[in-house]
Structure formats: C-alpha cells, structure tokens
Design a binder for these strands. Structure first.
Length: 471
DNA sequence: ATTATCAATT
C-alpha cells in the first residue's frame, strides 16, 4: 500500500511546465491527494516531454529549433542531454547554443557542467563573446566561488577572448561583494598593466567598497578623483552615497546630496527617492516618506513598486496591518500591481505572527492575481506551517513548491519529516524523503541522525530509511 | 545593449 503510493509519486515527471495556478489548486485542495494530478496534465501540457529526445534528420537540417528548444527547457540536466544528443550525430554546435546552455547551467549553479562546456569551446575553437564570461564571473560571485571567478578572468585569453573593462568590473564587483577588498585594490593597481581604463562603473564599485568599509572620507576622495579625471558621476554614484547617509540616519545630508545631484543636471530616479523614503521611515517619519513619494511623481519621476515596497516594509515592521491593507487598496486603485516582493512581505509578516491561514490566503490570492510565487515565498509558507506544527498543510505547499521547480531548505525538509513522523504520517514522510532523493538533495549527517533517532520508534519508517541509506 | 544603486528571504 505504502509502496504503491510512493511508486506513483516517484514515476511522475518532476519538472512539468504547467500553469502555476492550476497545479497549485489541484495540489492544495484537500479533496484531492496532492500527487494525483500529474498524469492528467501530461497530455495537455506543452512540456519538455513533448520534445524529441532522439534527434531526427529533420532537426539536423535546421539548427534553429535546437536553440529554441534549449531556451524552453528548464531542467539543466535535460538541456545538457539534448545538447549531447545533437552532438553525437555529428552536429556542430555554434556560439549561441553554447552561450544559452552555459547561462542555464550557471543559473542552476551546475558549475561542473559549465566547465565541461568551456572545455568544448576551447577544443572546437569556438569564439565566445565577452558577455558570457561576464555572466559567469557574476554567477561565480553569487555562489561565493570567488577564486573560480578570478581564475576565469585570468584564463579568458586562452579562450581567444580579449578582456575589456566589462569583465574587469564584473570581477572587481565580485571581489568587493565578497569582502575581498585587498584583492580588489591589487586589481586596481594593476589595471593599466592589463590595458584597462577605468570607467564610471569601476568608480561606482570602488565607492561602494569604501562605503561598505564604513569609510566615508575615502569614498569622497574617490568621488573627487572621478571628477578630476572627468568621469561623469551617474545617478548610481549619487545613490550609493545617498543610501549610505540614510542608513547612518543622516537624511539631511542625503537630501543635500540629492539637491546637489539635481543642480548638476542629474535626474534622480525611483531608487534615489526610495533611499530617501527609507531613511525617513527609519526615523519614524512615515508621513514624510509617503509625501516624498507623491512629490516624486510631481517632479516627473516615474514611480516604481520599490517605493511602495519601502512604505510597506515600514508598516509591517511596526505591525500596522490596517495601514498596510489600505496601502494595498491604494495601489489597487492606482492600478499598480503588487509584485512577488510585496506579497513576500505580507507572507513574512503573517508567518512571523504564526497566522498561517492568513499567509496561506496571500499565497493563493497572489496566484489568482497572476503573480508567481518564488522560492522565498514557498519557503516562508512551508516554514510557517512547520513552526505552527501544521505539517499536513505544509506538505501540500511543499508539493506545490517542488512541482514549480523550487527547492526547500534542508532544515525545512528535516523539520517536515520529523513532524510528519510525530503525527504518524509515515507515508507522507516517505513521500518527502523520496522526492528529495529524486532531486539529489541529500541530508547532512546531523539531519540523518535526527531522523534515524526519531524513526527508531517507527518500524515501517525504519525499513524505508534502510532502503534509502543503502541506496 | 549594460556591468554599478533598490523594498521580501537566506
């Protein structure tokens, strides 16, 4: 009985690209078991399953469909297997195909596969645009693989690609964002040796570096040097400094810098206003912040959701849910659609307050409004349910999360399994375990220890565990 | 044809 249920779950395709709301609804409503809907979607969905897995002669003559296909595929493993299928028939991939696949793999942080592809580029003498390297350096940086980023930057020449200030800036930014300012400074000292001329963006990154080190004086010196070298400061240059002063509580200083910018003929953007608004609300001046938002429109600056986001953050931080609701109403009146971030703020608030029903309602509402939840959204709701001990409800959301291609954190899964076992929902616990195994999301030793310890009181689960461990 | 600034999380 248990096995058949698990079998059914494990044979369902893990990554179907189907309408989010539809899948969410079928998976969430208790009238239907959470994994019974896959099959019914199979024939209708325009999913990756309909793609030919074996190359046909027809496809070989037309290289465009491969790229189009590749762009549609979400699962990087699938994308790489399609790539190989073509290659095996003697098809020679070109630069756009490589670029597309490299971006896809880097985004899913499969850097091993990225390196394999880079190797192909070298062996087949395919010239690559600098853009690809810039993208890769950034992805390495986000994954905190700073040394990988440095290595790639130094190896660019071996790919027959000349380095420009673009890739230089990309690496410089990675170094600064990862607290490697010594390396950043070393790079700056060597820039002329590399034939790199610093541009405005380079200076913006350097200013950010000093501000992150809390050194206002040095940041100002760089700003002065910028003007000396006749490199025009941009809105971003000013925004960096405005943001710094606001975070220090010096909104007056920020305001005068803002005026300075206007005097120099630089038009403030929505971010400039958002920063000032944030500064004001952190000083408890919500009304002034809101007034500034209207001033901004009067000055002809286009309002962005960030500006509402700043106000919403402040209201929810103070727990003023009534005012938060009227802000939502106001947005609706003005036909400004809340985005994922706004919904996430609300969900975060309700989860922190242990009001899971409300959080869940937002999760449903946002999808009805046509806004797709992201990994953060799902994580917060699932964690919220775990916190309140509503593991069955959490499981339904977890399932919806997995179907839409997002992953929970290991701690969440661990908490979920323990909670389900505690409620003697062995089948459900097995289901979660199985799903994680399928996605190669393995537990660390500590989590296993906790689960095994708990499972010892549960003989059926022990069998499954042994099965999993031997595997 | 875009690298830098931006409200939610980790």
């Amino acid at each position: 009985m248990i096995n058949s249920r698990i079998k059914q779950a494990s044979t369902t395709p893990s990554k179907l690209k189907i309408n989010n709301l539809a899948q969410f609804r079928t998976s969430i409503f208790p009238s239907q078991p959470y994994h019974s809907h896959h099959r019914s979607h199979k024939p209708t969905s325009k999913s990756s399953l309909e793609r030919p897995h074996k190359p046909t002669k027809n496809l070989l003559r037309k290289p465009i469909p491969l790229l189009a296909n590749l762009k549609q595929i979400q699962d990087p493993d699938e994308a790489i297997s399609l790539f190989h299928d073509y290659q095996q028939t003697g098809f020679k991939h070109d630069y756009p195909t490589y670029a597309c696949l490299i971006y896809k793999l880097a985004k899913s942080r499969d850097f091993e596969a990225v390196e394999t592809l880079l190797g192909y580029l070298k062996t087949y003498y395919i010239r690559c645009q600098e853009k690809v390297f810039v993208g890769l350096i950034q992805h390495y940086g986000k994954a905190q693989l700073v040394d990988k980023a440095i290595e790639l930057f130094h190896n660019m020449a071996s790919f027959n690609c000349t380095r420009s200030v673009q890739s230089f800036n990309a690496l410089l930014n990675v170094l600064v964002d990862n607290g490697r300012s010594d390396d950043a400074n070393k790079m700056l000292r060597n820039c002329s040796k590399m034939g790199i001329w610093l541009n405005g963006v380079s200076f913006n990154i350097i200013i950010k570096m000093w501000l992150e080190k809390d050194d206002w004086e040095l940041a100002r010196q760089v700003f002065d040097e910028m003007i000396e070298r006749e490199i025009e400061p941009t809105v971003v240059t000013y925004n960096c400094q405005i943001g710094f002063l606001c975070k220090k509580g010096d909104v007056e200083g920020a305001k005068s810098l803002f005026q300075d910018m206007v005097r120099k003929g630089k038009k403030p953007n929505a971010v400039s206003y958002a920063l000032l608004m944030e500064g004001l609300s952190s000083l408890g001046k919500y009304k002034e912040a809101k007034k500034l938002m209207f001033d901004m429109e009067y000055q002809g600056c286009k309002l962005k959701i960030v500006n509402y986001g700043v106000l919403m953050t402040d209201l929810l931080k103070r727990g003023d849910i009534g005012e938060a609701n009227s802000l939502l109403v106001e947005m609706k009146k003005r036909h400004i659609k809340p985005d994922v971030v706004i919904y996430n703020m609300l969900i975060n608030y309700f989860c922190k307050e242990c009001k899971t029903a409300e959080a869940y309602r937002i999760l449903v509402d946002m999808q009805i409004a046509g806004c797709n939840p992201n990994a953060t959204t799902y994580r917060m709701v699932v964690d919220g349910f775990c916190k309140t001990g509503e593991f069955e409800e959490g499981l339904k959301v977890l399932n919806a999360m997995l179907i839409s291609g997002h992953f929970p954190r290991v701690e969440t899964v661990r908490c979920m399994i323990l909670g389900l076992l505690d409620k003697e929902k062995v089948e459900d616990a097995c289901f979660v375990l199985e799903e994680m195994e399928k996605r190669k999301k393995r537990f660390d030793f500590e989590s296993w220890e906790a689960i095994v310890k708990d499972a010892c009181s549960n003989s059926i689960f022990v069998y499954r565990l042994v099965d999993e461990l031997v595997f």
